[in-house]
Amino acid sequence: MSETHNILDVENINVSYGHLQVVWDVSFSVGKSKVVALLGLNGAGKTTILKTIAGLIRPQSGSVGFLGQDITKLPTHMLAERGLSFISEERNLFISMTVEENLTLGAYSVKRKDKIHENLRAVYDLFPRLKERSKQLAGTMSGGERQMLAIARGLMSNPRMIMLDEPSMGLSPQNVRVVFETIKMLREQGVTTLIVEQNVNTTLEFADRAYVIDQGRVVMEGTSSEVRADNRIRKLYLGEE
């Protein structure tokens, strides 16, 4: 946990659901202002890894370090304050609340009111669509709008790092573009991203590094171009022969 240049250090985590172990000895790290992708087929254990980092699941062994501090046993609700934001695959929106209420709650860990307003303006600038819909109930929005709202809510707490689980799932190609452009822009602002994606091509286009997970183990790691060049990866995930 001494490498202070890393935002996130995952070391040898093992995670099980009951007797079924789904993550085996996984280690990886995410450097500051980088976009790192976890790739792999369905059921490879990528979501489990993110949930473990977020403290929603406890690992059997191993540790998770964030900004040089051990957060392995930290309760989930403490993470937002520390600067880690998890935008889950389920979105976990507050469906009977308005867009604006969702966003305000996203800044629950921010104590200063003026800062909350500033963040609200910033995410509205980022997603003008949400501003148009600010009084609409989250549960009545389309899939793409919900995903935007989930990301926007995750940004309301001034995160140092965001973890995105399948952000492009269910989105139109145009909205997928918006999501990835947002990630790129966040990186320019110094926000680090850890992303889990099925959309391998686009992800590798934007990511700096990628880890390929297969059956709960890291089977390959490297820069995006290294991963893209790997024959096995091309076959498995890019559908090329």
Partner: peptide, 20 residues
């Protein structure tokens, strides 16, 4: 609002920093 948030999505509430 935090109480309503927990009733609607407990995981989402934890993620935004609400102590369940």
């Amino acid at each position: 609002r935090a109480i309503r948030a927990v009733s609607q999505d407990a995981t989402g509430a934890q993620l935004v920093g609400i102590n369940l």
